[in-house]
Amino acid sequence: MVSSLRQHYERITAAQAAADAGDQVMQGDAYHLMQAQLWEDYRRLKSVQSVERKVEIKREILPNYAEYIDGVLDAGRGAEDEVLMRVMLWRIDVGDITGALPIARYAMQHQLDPGEQFQRSTAAILAEESADQALALGDDDDSMLDALVEINELIDGRDMHDQIRAKLHKSLGNGHRARGDMPDALTHYQRAFELNDRAGVKKDIERIEKALKKQAEEPSQSEQPEPQTNTSPQG
C-alpha cells in the first residue's frame, strides 16, 4: 500500500511538472514515470480479449494514477498530456463518469487534443463514451444523469457527428424519464430524433406525448367543483 508521504510526493511532483510545462507538452520525471506505467498497463489490457476483464483491470490500476492526476489538475496550465487523457477515458469505461468530470472540465477548458489514436475530438469522446455507459444501464437508471447534464454543457457548441450528439440526448432523455422529469425527457428525445431519426427514441416520444396530453386533460384537484354545503336549518 502506498504511504501518505509517497502520495503527497507524487502529487507535488506532478503539479510541478504541469506548472513547468505551461501550455506545451508534458515533460519531467513525474510525467515520464506515469507514461511508462501507462504503456505497461496498456499492453496488459491489449493482451486481454474479455471486455469484462478489461474493465476489472482498469478499476484495479486507476488508483495508481490518482495522485498524478490531482497534481496536474491543481497546477496545470493546459499542457498536452497523454496520461491525463487516457485516465479520463478509463474512468468513463468503468462507469465512473463523475470521476472523469474533473479531467473533462480541464481538458475542455484548455482544448486538449486526445491524440491521433482516439480518432475523435475530446468533446466527441466525452459525449459518446459517457452516453454508451449510461445507455448500457437501461432506461430506468438515473444515476449518471447529473454527470451527463454537465457533459452536455461542456460540449455545447463543439463540432461532432450528429449521431454522437443524438446518443447523448437519448441518454439524457432516459435519465430524466427515470427521475420523473417527463417534459425534460421529451425535449431530449425530440432533439435526439432531430439529429438522428434512427436513434431509437420514436416510441419514447410517442409514449411521453400521450402521457403528458392525458395529464393535461385531467382536471386538477383545484379545478374540481367545491362540494355543496348544506346551510338549511336543522330541525
Rank of each mutant, 00 (worst) to 15 (best):
L5H: 08
T13H: 01
Q16R: 08
A18F: 05
D20G: 05
D20S: 12
G22S: 13
Q24E: 14
V25M: 11
V25T: 15
V25Y: 02
D29G: 05
L38V: 11
W39N: 13
E40Y: 05
K46R: 14
Q49C: 03
S50E: 13
E52F: 07
K54P: 05
V72A: 05
G78T: 01
A79S: 10
V83K: 02
L89P: 10
I92L: 02
V94E: 10
A104L: 06
Y106E: 05
Y106A: 15
A107Y: 07
H110M: 08
L112E: 12
D113N: 15
Q117F: 06
R120H: 08
S121G: 14
T122S: 15
A124F: 02
L126V: 00
A134P: 01
D139Y: 13
M144K: 12
L145F: 14
E153H: 06
L154R: 00
D156G: 05
D156M: 03
H161C: 09
R165V: 09
A166V: 11
K167V: 04
A178Q: 06
R179I: 09
T187A: 09
E194D: 15
N196V: 10
R198F: 12
V201C: 12
K213E: 14
E217H: 03
E223M: 13
E223T: 15
E226F: 08
Q228W: 12
S232I: 00
